[in-house]
Design a protein around this nucleic acid. Structure first.
Length: 340
DNA sequence: TGGTTTATAACGGCAACTCC
DNA sequence: GGAGTTGCCGTTATAAACCA
C-alpha cells in the first residue's frame, strides 16, 4: 500500500545516505542496492513530495534548501523509528511509558505524597493533575488523562473500568462547643448551613440530600473548598454537611469540630476509573495501593478520633477497618500492614 | 578526452490478487 | 488449490552530463 505521507522509512534512509555521502553510488553501496535503484528511489521521493530535493545541475549532485530541510526532518523520523524499534525488541512493558492521572482535590491533599510514590513506582513517566471531579470525566473520555480517582464513577459511560477504593458516610460537622440536638433538623435550627458551591459534585449530592429530606436551610454562605468550609465551622460560623475525608484533607484539626452522624444515611464513593483494556493490571494495582494508603494515612487516623465512623468507612465491599483494604486482617486502630 | 556520476529503458523476480 | 495477471521493486546495460 503506498504511504499517504509521500515517503517510507526506507526511502528516507536512502535520501539521508545520499545527502551524507553526496553521492548516489556511495549511498547505494551503504544500502546494498544498485546506483540505479537509489536514483529511482530519489526521483520517486521528489515526485511524491512535489519538490526538488537535490540539485542535479552540478556534479556530484548537491542538496537544495528544501532538501536540507527535509534531511533534518528525515533524520528525526529515522532516529524516532530506531528508538521505537529498539524498545519494541526489548519487549519490556512492565512499566508503562507515560500515565496521566487526575485526582480529586480531597485525595491529593489527604494522601497525595504516598499516592504519587505509588504511581511513580509503577510507571516510567507520569503526570498528575488535580481539580474538581466534574472536570475529570471529560478529561478521561477525551484521553487527556488515563486514570481518574474521584467521587464521580462516570456511571453513564460504557467502556470504562471502575474500582471503588473508598466509601465513606456524609456527616454533620458542627463547632466544637455546639451543645444542641444531634439530628439535622435541630442543628439547622440553631446553626447556619455552610454549603459547598453547587457546581461541585459534593455540593450537588448534599443539595439532593436536603431536598430528599425536605430541608431547605437558607443559603448564606457557599464556599468552594473544604479548607474554607471546615475553617468556617471550626470558628463557629455555622455547620456543614461533609465527609470525614474532606475534614481530614482540609487541614483543620480533627479535634476542632464535632462530627455527628446523619440519620438518613448518605454515602460518598471514591472510585478509580480507567478506560477498558488499555493499561493492563496497572489500574487494579494502583487501586489496591490506594486502599492501603487510605487505610494507613486516613482511616486509621480519623477513626481513632471518631471510632463510630469505623463501621461506615469501607474500601471496596468490606469495611476497611474490619477486613482491611487488601483483604488483609487489620482491625481499625491497629497498624495497617505495610508494603504490598 | 577519459573517468566518474547520474538517468533511463528494458527486463526479471516475487508477492498479492483474481478467477476457475 | 492452482494458474494467470498485475504491479512493485530491483537489476543490468547503456546513454548523457559533468569535471579535471
Amino acid at each position: 500500500m503506498p504511504s499517504s505521507f509521500g515517503f517510507e522509512l526506507k526511502t528516507l534512509q536512502a535520501f539521508v545516505f545520499v545527502v551524507e555521502t553526496g553521492n548516489l553510488t556511495e549511498a547505494a553501496k551503504r544500502l546494498a542496492l544498485s546506483q540505479s535503484s537509489v536514483s529511482q528511489i530519489l526521483a520517486q521521493l521528489e515526485e511524491s513530495l512535489g519538490i526538488q530535493l537535490m540539485d542535479r545541475s552540478v556534479r556530484p549532485m548537491a542538496v537544495t534548501t528544501a532538501g536540507r530541510f527535509f534531511y533534518d526532518r528525515a533524520q528525526g523520523i529515522l532516529e524516532a523509528a530506531e528508538i521505537t524499534s529498539k524498545e519494541m525488541r526489548k519487549a519490556d512493558f512492565k512499566l508503562l511509558r507515560h500515565v496521566k492521572v487526575a485526582l480529586v482535590d480531597s485525595i491529593i491533599t489527604a494522601v497525595g505524597k504516598p499516592l504519587i510514590d505509588v504511581i511513580r513506582n509503577r510507571t516510567q513517566n507520569w503526570s498528575v493533575v488535580s481539580g474538581q471531579s466534574h472536570l475529570h470525566s471529560h478529561m478521561l473520555l477525551s484521553k487527556q488523562v488515563d486514570i481518574t480517582i474521584s467521587d464521580d464513577p462516570l456511571d453513564d459511560y460504557s467502556g470504562l473500568m471502575r474500582q471503588r477504593i473508598l466509601q465513606e458516610p456524609f456527616v454533620l460537622a458542627v463547632p466544637i462547643n455546639y451543645r444542641g440536638g444531634a439530628d439535622i433538623s435541630s442543628v439547622l435550627q440553631s446553626l447556619n448551613l455552610i454549603r459547598y458551591t453547587s457546581n461541585s459534585l459534593i455540593g450537588q449530592q448534599i443539595e439532593k440530600y436536603l431536598r430528599r429530606n425536605q430541608l431547605s436551610p437558607e443559603s448564606h454562605l457557599q464556599l468552594d473548598n473544604s479548607f474554607a468550609v471546615m475553617s468556617a465551622v471550626a470558628s463557629g460560623i455555622g455547620c456543614t454537611i461533609t465527609t470525614p475525608l474532606c475534614l481530614f484533607q482540609s487541614g483543620v484539626g480533627l479535634h476542632q469540630v464535632q462530627l455527628l452522624p446523619l440519620t438518613d444515611k448518605l454515602l460518598r464513593n471514591i472510585s478509580l476509573v480507567s478506560r477498558e483494556n488499555e493499561l493492563g493490571d496497572l489500574p487494579g494495582t494502583i487501586a489496591r495501593d490506594c486502599k492501603r494508603i487510605l487505610l494507613e494515612s486516613y482511616v486509621n487516623v480519623v477513626t481513632a478520633v471518631f471510632p463510630w465512623l469505623s463501621a461506615d468507612i469501607t474500601g471496596g465491599e468490606a469495611p476497611l477497618g474490619k477486613k482491611a483494604s487488601l483483604g488483609e486482617k487489620a482491625p481499625l486502630g491497629e497498624k495497617a500492614p505495610l508494603g504490598k
